[in-house]
């Protein structure tokens, strides 16, 4: 699969109080951002579990990111800091199995940062396009391609 054909599937776990609203604002502002991003709304990024992140990859995501409030601005005081630690840990796990922790990231933004939401979406899509499809997909493709 060439890089130009590859359209990554990206899951964004977004906090209801910031990134999700920022996504809404990006829409109201008619800002364009790649349709590769699938948003999952969370009550707070503190709800993010390492298992959610791994399952997203297992179910075929090429990239995953968590978007929470600006540091110090969490509606639940420190949910975004907890998410940051979990994302960091999950990145380590992904590196350990050779999947690549770079496919996972944590971002911070406020509800008023619609343009930043669009920018982050573009940034992540660009990054994953460079990294290529999820290693589990590459293998599946190779295997089916190997068949006579």
């Amino acid at each position: 699969m060439s890089e130009s054909e590859f359209e990554p599937k990206i899951v964004a776990f977004c906090c209801h109080y910031c990134a999700y609203t920022a996504a809404d604002l990006a829409g109201s502002m008619r800002l364009q951002y790649p349709p590769n991003v699938r948003v999952v709304r969370l009550p707070c990024t503190g709800k993010v579990d390492i298992l959610y992140l791994l399952k997203a990859f297992e179910d075929g995501a090429d990239g995953v990111y968590v978007a929470g409030c600006m540091e110090g601005d969490c509606h639940f005081i420190n949910g975004n800091f907890r998410a940051k630690k979990r994302v960091h840990y999950a990145k380590k796990l992904l590196d350990e199995i050779g999947f690549g922790g770079d496919r996972l990231e944590m971002f911070n933004m406020s509800a008023s940062m619609g343009p930043r939401f669009a920018e982050v979406a573009r940034e992540m899509v660009d990054r994953i396009k460079k990294l290529g499809p999820s290693p589990i997909k590459t293998v599946q493709t190779q295997k089916s391609g190997d068949k006579p």
Binding site: I50, L51, F57, L93
Partner: peptide, 19 residues
């Protein structure tokens, strides 16, 4: 239970990428 889920997910991801 949670750590079982995490380890199992890691093992599946790891094996899948090795085909």
């Amino acid at each position: 239970e949670k750590e079982v889920g995490i380890l199992a997910a890691e093992l599946r991801l790891s094996r899948k990428q090795k085909g």
